[in-house]
Amino acid sequence: MTTGFAPAAQPSPTRSAIAAQVRDVVKTYGRGDTAVRALDGVNLEIAAERFTAVMGPSGSGKSTLMHALAGLDTINAGQVLLGDTDLSGLGERKRTLLRRDRIGFVFQSFNLVPTLTAAENIVLPLPLAGRPPDRAWIDDLVATLGLGDRLRHRPAELSGGQQQRVAVARALAARPQIVFADEPTGNLDSRAGEALLSFLRHAAHELGQTIVMVTHDPNAAAFADRVVFLADGRVVGDLAEPTAAAILSRMASIDAPATRKTR
């Protein structure tokens, strides 16, 4: 992925639009004495066409928050809005269809179906929905991600970086309302990781794709437009246009009291 990114098709005029929001969300696991409050009254707005990173130490609730936002998990109290759809009231089937039609995913690993080729993996959600793929859009994505010569390969024949790029292409193929990326660079070397993050930033800014990324890596978060910090199931910080250094120092200040509290 050494090629430069194509200029934006449509620079976004409405930077302030809200793609999703979370209101007073509570999520507990277990019951009684062993109950854990993974999300403890979280409030958050995700700006449209921006690249937002969610950070926090392990156990902070960042993955739970993403799962709730993406309709992968239910919540106990509060509201999760995707556009103007309230996810908290949706049943399993409706959430599945919502994921299929309006959400894209990039996981840390095992993003691809091993039996399908790269090309088939990229369009995977579309035939599931019975929708025809937008060929021009997908060709663009493939070209931009530098996957043109890997399309007929199966995942086992691709490098880790290539696999993640195929996953990103898959996430964007259906032009979802939001793409969620869960530690997308966790298994990549730093060069491949940076290339992927640059593309995500590019996708938000130039292609108008709303992206939410969960990570614990400050260098990765620094590619985002905004970083939200989570600890003990609450939002404890918010940083716009972050740098790695700023993120690190903010994390240190969050970690300290959290550590004290558990003692």
């Binding site: 992968l72 399993e92 089937r93 599945t96 269809l97 994921r99 299929r100 039609d101 894209g104 995913f105 996981f107 095992f110 993003n111 691809l112 179906v113 995977l124 959600p125 599931l128 929905a129 898959r170």
Partner: peptide, 11 residues
């Protein structure tokens, strides 16, 4: 993964 990207239980 298939379920996450939108395969329904029926499918």
């Amino acid at each position: 993964l298939l379920r996450a990207v939108g395969m329904t239980r029926g499918q």
